[in-house]
Amino acid sequence: MSPVTAMYVAQAIHGLTYGMLLFLVASGLTLIFGMMGILNLAHASFFMLSAYFCYQVVAWTDSFWIALILAPIGTGLVGIIVERFLLRKVQKLGLGHIGDLLLTLGIALVISEAVKTIWGTESHQVLIPPSLQGLVTVAGLEYPIYRLFIIGLSLVILGALAFILFKTRLGMIIRAAVSDRDMVSALGINMPRVFMFVFGVGTLMAGVAGVAAAPMLTVFPGLADQIGLDAFVVVVVGGFGSLLGAVVVSLFLGELNSFGIQFIPRLAPVLVFLFMALVLSFKPMGFFGERDE
């Protein structure tokens, strides 16, 4: 491979890595919105929380692999607790989006403060496990193993999610609930439990993303801010509740990021929001969205 081709291929894989990471965060957000109608402003905070859990588990056990399993589960549990004891109550009050908005913003602030109280304001570091360090060389292209691992991990999660959604009874209920919640409820299905499950899985996936991103980034209290906004764009443009939309738009934004930086670096950040404004102006519910609130 010539150096120039290698550069383009590398950029494409970078886009894929970031896109998949974004998908892990956005898919949870879109499922939660699509099914429960909740605009979860705390979603990225779960991402950050999981990165901190990861840091802590690594500090205790010295194993990234244990952290990869425990941290997302811990995050998912926190998510379940939040759903069971806070969100569910607020949903019952019937305030609509407005209540969720205030509540989830409140939760995001409390998580941020909790993280600072427990782990301090300084930044923490997580190392790539030794088995994933270094580069692989394929056809003259050097690429870090860890980034390939992120892509692989995300694909596994995507596969598992697709399997649950499209091949199981639970998945069928969830999909049905996305299009018509009341109807499903009328069929005598225990909706609160399904909601709890969806919220737990959504936060768990944000948690996986948090662990995967930790060795590439710095674990610090402001970690949640940026990826949260990007995930929001994905959900909005892809269409609320649409998993397919989340996949497509995440990957598109990932590649837009890579090649935008390669060719039009000055305009890259403007493009994202211009794109969002254009899509929404002409397709208000996003590319793959159906439901109108």
Partner: peptide, 11 residues
């Protein structure tokens, strides 16, 4: 913490 708790309590 204060702002977050206020939001939660209000809601």
């Amino acid at each position: 913490l204060v702002t977050g708790l206020l939001f939660i309590i209000v809601v």
